[in-house]
Design a protein around this nucleic acid. Structure first.
Lengths: 198, 198
DNA sequence: CGATTACGTTAATGGTGACTAACATCGCGG
DNA sequence: CCGCGATGTTAGTCACCATTAACGTAATCG
């Protein structure tokens, strides 16, 4: 206990710690499979201490997913506004999503599994952010391939997300440094094919 | 008389019905999110009637996942043994997985989310089948591209599964008839790109 | 110094849900 | 006709778990 001279230095820290630990647990065992006591235990406090930081289990999940989806959406928006051309923008979007998938596999997993357990109100916000994120991709793709119908571009985008988010499954197969360019190449090729087929 | 008309026919029927309904529910709300009563209700019986057909909730899940993974593995094995060449085999494997993903999205979803809730014993069997299934893919890919390291092929295979299994997410976007060739083209291109490493 | 705030702790409490018991029904083979 | 196996039903039972109560402790601030 040598590292705690000032007990109050953990102001916003504990919250973040809890969110991180909960993400791992939810990803591994599912929202309903994780008792609140386990979340506490994972950060060194036990059980109902969580209620000092969150209104409840669902509120915790909601904040987690809202955070993820707004971070993704913001990154995408930033990339789009600061770009020089559609091809570069697409590359940058791929980079964003790949980085996220490789660095935060638990968050990605929870993000597309547990939306149904978020209370109605914030679920709508999250969905809105997700939709906006997808639309950033579709817009860029449409610029590159105006002839391709939007529905097809949307489906292709979802498929590419599936490809990139597979990272949690192939965790041990390849080192992260090899994974990144592999995913980039595969996703790029898949999009190219989606847009050209027939 | 081996074929009893009325009495024994419902036996296998009801079981299958339950498995089908449970798959939908598990896919939508997660294993722990579905009370056993809801499963019963979905097939018109109520609650504990399930125990006439399965040893328990986990046993039901186990049977479901075992069935999926052995069906996939068997289809793959059949395709491999009856094929004329590696390129055609790969096409046939793609066909198998795409058909499954499009026709049984709920099963696919549950299959890669809920393995953790299967009791140890049958979890091992399921994992074995999954591994064998992946190895069919890797073997064929290795024949086509002997220079590519197996680990890379495995990672690429998982990524392609992620792409193909994204179907549940992009459900409404495109009609199934358009979805099939799109997925095939994207997956093929992604594999091609994966294998042409730098 | 109080007092308030921030954070934890350990006991209830209440609801939910898996599983079991006790009790029908019904189609059949003897 | 009788027993019986297959299949359901409805009422427990018993754990588990989210949430709340009631109760410390320590630091900040007036």
């Amino acid at each position: 206990m040598t590292t705690a001279p000032t007990p109050t230095r953990n102001r916003g820290n504990r919250r973040a710690e809890i969110l991180r630990a909960a993400a791992e647990l939810f990803a591994a065992r599912g929202f309903h499979g994780v008792p609140i006591e386990d979340i506490g235990a994972a950060v060194g406090v036990s059980g109902p201490a969580l209620y000092r930081h969150f209104a409840g289990k669902e509120a915790l999940l909601a904040e987690m997913l809202l955070d993820v989806s707004s971070r993704l959406r913001e990154s995408a928006a930033a990339v789009v506004t600061s770009s020089t051309g559609p091809a570069e923008t697409l590359d940058a979007l791929l980079h964003v999503q790949i980085t996220f998938a490789i660095e935060q596999p638990a968050l990605i997993t929870v993000h597309d599994r547990e939306l149904g357990n978020v209370p109605e109100r914030e679920r709508r916000q999250i969905r809105r952010l997700q939709r906006l994120y997808v639309e950033e991709w579709v817009t860029v793709l449409a610029e590159l391939h105006p002839a391709c119908p939007a529905a097809r571009l949307r489906a292709a985008t979802h498929a590419v997300f599936g490809l990139l988010n597979s990272t949690p499954h192939s965790a041990g197969e390849l080192p992260g440094e090899a994974m990144r360019p592999l995913l980039h190449a595969m996703a790029g090729a898949a999009l190219e094919a989606a847009v050209n087929a027939r």
